[in-house]
Simulated scan of single mutants.
Amino acid sequence: MTSPLTYAAAGVSIEAGDELVRRIKPLAQRTYGAGVLAGIGGFGALFRVPSGYREPVLVSGTDGVGTKLKLAFALNRHHTIGQDLVAMSVNDILVQGAAPLFFLDYYACSQLDVDVAEQVVAGIARGCQMAGCALIGGETAEMPGMYPPGEYDLAGFAVGVAERSELIDGCSIVPGDVVLGLASSGPHSNGYSLIRRIVEASGAHYTDDVDGRTLGERLLEPTRIYCRPVLEVMQSIRIKGMAHITGGGLVENVPRILPPAVQAVIGRDGWPKPAIFDWLQRHGRVEDAEMHRVFNCGIGYVVVVAASDAAAAVEAFGAQGETCWPVGAIRNRGSGEAGCIVT
């Protein structure tokens, strides 16, 4: 050893980390509302619980974006993956009727590329603005040797608030209720290990055309964030239960909100299946049951309402810019029957 060792010589650049913080501070500050008391830069962020709640309940969620990141690396497209990260957590806490308050992110890599990280965080900030929450903190971890060059990992954490008496848990769902489906923007952030295997096995290229756009563009379309429209519709329509359609598709996620004595019967002809799912099924020779167990197949979010409210709910979601279809109904569940079937 001829000279003293430094952190930089070990592969960690404090200067790069400082530069990233300098760049992302204004991005985060654009998401701030009245509740933010202290944000990025301190040891801990501070947020004031909103007034107007008699018995506020905090609802938390955490998630990542899985191997969709591999597509972002392959296509060198990093500006939308942050929206995916936000969507996966805020859509989850929305299920119980919570309005998102704030979000934190974790970005890990072996060598920090400030330009790439800035693109990712810009997408996170944009997602927070769409969800109506503040990006108040996070962690950037530069860990030499932990990841292949040019790759990174992401995790996100969301906290929202709901009135305790207005929490939505699905317990009031009964036979005769209607299942509504809100359109997804594509596969969202689930099933990408299978997607990448299909692309590889079929010999397809991300530049191939799929219904007027490249395959890569279709697959990297960011996850839709449903918070603002759903919270708005909740003001006029009694929503009995909701489900975020993530890994497990309709057949695994819808039963999570149902009482044990009922099942959801969903008709596969109740909505138009987007072209990307037809492409995946055809090129992967994926059976129908597997498609509905892995992918959202065009339905990114499910809402259950009374039959008497269904038409008004569809209209209300349409007024909020959401495409909404009545896709099924709640029935009595027989012994040994699944909680959700797609017919």
Rank of each mutant, 00 (worst) to 15 (best):
G44E: 15
A45I: 08
F47Q: 09
R48D: 11
S51T: 10
G52K: 09
P56Q: 02
V57S: 02
V57L: 06
V59Y: 07
S60L: 11
G61T: 06
G61W: 13
D63T: 12
G66R: 00
T67Q: 12
K68I: 00
F73S: 04
F73D: 15
N76S: 11
H78C: 01
H79V: 06
T80W: 12
I81W: 08
G82W: 13
V86Y: 10
A87G: 08
M88P: 00
M88T: 15
M88S: 14
V90W: 05
N91Y: 04
I93H: 07
G97K: 14
A98L: 07
L101N: 07
D105F: 15
D105P: 00
D105G: 06
Y107C: 03
S110W: 07
S110Q: 06
Q111G: 04
V114D: 05
V114Y: 08
D115I: 09
E118H: 00
Q119K: 15
V121M: 12
A122M: 13
I124N: 03
R126Q: 15
M130T: 10
A131W: 08
G132Y: 13
A134L: 10
G138C: 08
E139W: 06
E142F: 06
P144M: 04
G145E: 04
M146F: 14
M146E: 13
M146P: 02
P148A: 05
Y152W: 08
D153C: 11
D153G: 15
L154I: 12
A158M: 09
V159K: 10
A162H: 01
S165R: 15
G170A: 10
C171S: 13
I173K: 05
V174D: 12
G176M: 05
G176R: 01
V179G: 06
V179C: 12
L180S: 06
G181E: 05
S184A: 11
P187Q: 04
